[in-house]
């Protein structure tokens, strides 16, 4: 597999949200607006790239029996780093995303990539894989956030272009499930390779 396709596969072919259906909790919870989705995606991207690099470097040293706990500790370490970095440089985003930043530890995408890719590939390939999947995740979250923001509050990336309140249900819980469901339908119909 060429290096370039490692990065691009996350957009459509191995899209973590619409094809692999991983990491549903942050996908549904944080996409109340395009910006929030983007921030959550970038936070996950950060952890994904670093944990993929560390795990691919550590994998030959880790005994098979304890590999899952070791991976979880590695991931939890990078999540803690992310929490401290965000508290210092992006306190606004840290407050909005709240609980879902520490919960990146149990995001199946991160552990999934460690198990499926990073532990049997080189450091460079694993970093690119993390980047690709992370970008795919960021893209899907931004799209879902954008759709919900347009329908729910009549704005896009914070710029209001439809006056009035919008359909509030789309910013609240039911809208998350319904928008994701319909986007998945469109994805299945038009983009997924048969």
């Amino acid at each position: 597999m060429s290096k370039w396709s490692l990065v691009t596969k996350g957009f459509v072919k191995d899209n973590p949200t619409f094809v692999l259906v991983l990491g549903m909790c942050p996908t549904l919870a944080t996409t109340t607006s395009a910006i929030n989705g983007l921030e959550m995606g970038l936070a996950t991207l950060f952890v994904l790239v670093l944990s993929n690099i560390a795990i691919s470097a550590l994998a030959p040293l880790v005994p098979d029996k304890v590999h899952i706990p070791v991976y979880i500790v590695v991931i939890a370490t990078f999540v803690t780093v992310l929490q401290l970095v965000m508290q210092a440089y992006a306190p606004g985003a840290y407050a909005t995303l709240g609980l879902f930043i520490p919960l990146i530890v149990v995001n199946c995408i991160v552990l999934g990539r460690a198990e499926a890719f990073a532990n049997k590939n080189t450091v460079v390939d694993s970093a690119l894989d993390g980047l690709g999947i992370g970008l795919g995740f960021t893209l899907s979250l931004t799209v879902i956030g954008l759709v919900r923001e347009i329908l729910g509050s009549g704005s896009a990336f914070g710029f209001k272009f439809i006056p009035g309140d919008g359909m509030l249900a789309f910013v609240m819980a039911p809208g998350a499930f319904i928008v994701l469901g319909y986007l998945m339908v469109l994805f299945n119909k038009y983009l997924k390779k048969k």
Binding site: V21, A169, A173, P174, G175, A176, F177, I178, L180, G181, Y182, M184, V185, L186, N188, K189
Partner: peptide
């Protein structure tokens, strides 16, 4: 195109409502 997860998600959405 709705088979499997999409229809399940939409159902949950209505339940959440």
């Amino acid at each position: 195109a709705f088979k499997g997860l999409p229809i399940a998600l939409i159902t949950v959405g209505i339940m959440a409502m």
